[in-house]
Amino acid sequence: MSDTRAAAQTVRYQERLLVPWWWWPPGFLLAALIAATFARGVTALPAWLPYAVFFPVAAIVLLWLGRVEIKVVGTSSGETELWAGPAHLPVGVISRSAEVPRSAKSSALGRQLDPAAYVVHRPWVGPMVLVVLDDPDDPTPYWLISCRRPDRLLAALRV
């Protein structure tokens, strides 16, 4: 059974919050150190086996850390939705939105953070977007979303 909704969607903005490229060499270096420790400590194993196990594990962990996707999707019925990870909401319930610069991120995630807020935070992504909701049926007051290009995300929400 095919999903006909996927074919009728128009992606206005899409971004995957991947880890920076410079995390990969230290990740593989750590995998090599752990594999070398296993190879020297467990002599019953072939020397190549720990490397064959830990290098793919390092790659999987780094890919898993960057699995979150942010997107704004318009449907054929005219509705627009904001997706942040597994959660989504119609753009019609957004009362206002703004960019949270890197310099204000610690304040937004610190004492000022409402415990009921929905947060998609990745520390390796600098800016964030604040999306304030106006939905009486939803107890979530706002969303805070990490985003590398907040101006493009905000423009896609306003279209």
Rank of each mutant, 00 (worst) to 15 (best):
S2M: 11
S2A: 10
T4S: 14
R5S: 10
A6K: 11
A7P: 00
A7V: 11
Q9A: 06
T10K: 13
R12H: 06
R12W: 02
Y13I: 02
E15T: 07
E15W: 05
E15M: 10
L17C: 10
L18S: 14
V19I: 14
P20F: 05
P20W: 08
W21D: 11
W21I: 13
P26L: 10
L29R: 02
L29F: 14
L29V: 14
I34T: 08
A35G: 05
A36D: 10
A36K: 06
T37C: 13
F38T: 05
A39C: 09
A39P: 07
G41M: 05
T43L: 15
A44D: 10
W48A: 13
L49V: 14
Y51G: 00
A52I: 06
A52H: 00
F54G: 00
F55V: 10
V57W: 07
A59R: 00
A59K: 07
L62V: 10
W64D: 09
L65H: 12
G66L: 12
R67I: 07
E69R: 13
I70Y: 02
I70G: 02
V72N: 09
V73C: 04
G74L: 03
G78F: 11
T80M: 03
T80H: 08
E81C: 01
E81P: 01
L82H: 07
W83N: 04
W83T: 04
A84M: 10
L89V: 08
P90H: 12
V91H: 02
G92R: 13
G92S: 14
V93S: 12
V93T: 15
S95M: 09
P101F: 07
R102H: 11
R102F: 09
S103H: 11
A104L: 15
A104R: 14
K105H: 05
K105W: 02
S107C: 03
S107T: 09
S107D: 15
A108L: 04
L109D: 06
R111D: 15
Q112T: 13
P115T: 06
P115Q: 10
A117D: 06
V119C: 04
V120T: 11
V120L: 12
H121D: 15
R122H: 14
R122Y: 08
P123L: 06
P123F: 06
W124Y: 15
W124L: 07
G126A: 14
G126H: 08
P127H: 04
M128Q: 02
V129H: 06
V131F: 01
V132K: 12
D134L: 08
D134F: 01
D135M: 07
D135K: 06
D137L: 13
D138P: 03
P139N: 04
T140M: 05
T140V: 15
P141V: 01
D151G: 11
D151F: 06
R152D: 14
L154D: 02
A156T: 06
